[in-house]
Computed example of a mutant assay.
Amino acid sequence: MSKTFTAKDVADHKDEKNGMYIIVDSSVYDITNFLDEHPGGAKILKRMAGKNATKQFWKYHGKTVLDKYGGKLKIGELTETAKL
């Protein structure tokens, strides 16, 4: 049921046309339909789309936010890729 994504897969989803994904920890979230609901506004989500937002997410949010919204936004997990 859970899909796996590479960092490149996520990077390809950085606009509303292709969908907007972010990474938090090792999970991938589709934030495309969450833009208007985000209390901090859509601008910051658009800026982070296609990227690893872990540092920024935890700077401004607690675990309760992920518990509240994560279930409906999570679409999969980030796969590990070999580093050469």
Rank of each mutant, 00 (worst) to 15 (best):
D15G: 05
E37G: 01
S2Y: 10
M48H: 12
M48N: 12
M1W: 12
I75A: 03
K51E: 09
N18L: 11
T6E: 15
G71H: 02
K63I: 15
L66C: 00
I22Y: 02
H38C: 13
A53V: 08
K72L: 03
E77N: 13
A53M: 00
G70R: 06
F57I: 10
L45I: 11
T4P: 14
E80H: 12
D67L: 07
G41E: 11
T54D: 02
P39R: 07
G19S: 05
V28D: 03
V10S: 08
T4F: 15
L66T: 07
I75Y: 02
I22V: 14
G71K: 07
L73P: 10
A82E: 13
K55Y: 04
M1H: 09
A7L: 13
Y29H: 10
I75W: 04
G71N: 06
A11F: 10
L45P: 08
G19T: 01
F5D: 04
E80P: 08
L73R: 01
L84C: 06
T54G: 00
F34A: 02
I31Y: 03
L35R: 04
K59G: 09
P39V: 10
D15L: 13
I23K: 08
K68Q: 08
P39D: 04
G40F: 01
N18P: 04
G71S: 04
K51Y: 03
Y29F: 15
F57W: 01
G62Q: 05
H38Y: 11
L84D: 06
G62H: 03
Y60R: 13
A49V: 01
G70K: 09
E37M: 06
V24I: 15
D25L: 07
L78Q: 02
D25E: 11
K14Y: 12
S27K: 15
D15Q: 08
D30Y: 02
A53W: 01
D9P: 05
Y21N: 09
A7S: 14
Y60E: 09
I44E: 10
K43I: 08
E77K: 12
I22Q: 02
L35H: 09
L35S: 07
L78I: 00
K72Q: 07
S27N: 15
D9W: 10
V10F: 07
G62S: 05
M20Y: 05
G40N: 01
G19Y: 06
D67Y: 03
T54N: 00
G62N: 04
I75M: 05
L35P: 14
R47A: 13
N52P: 14
G70L: 09
Y60C: 08
T6V: 04
D9K: 08
V65W: 03
T81R: 14
K68E: 03
K68W: 04
E37Y: 05
D15W: 10
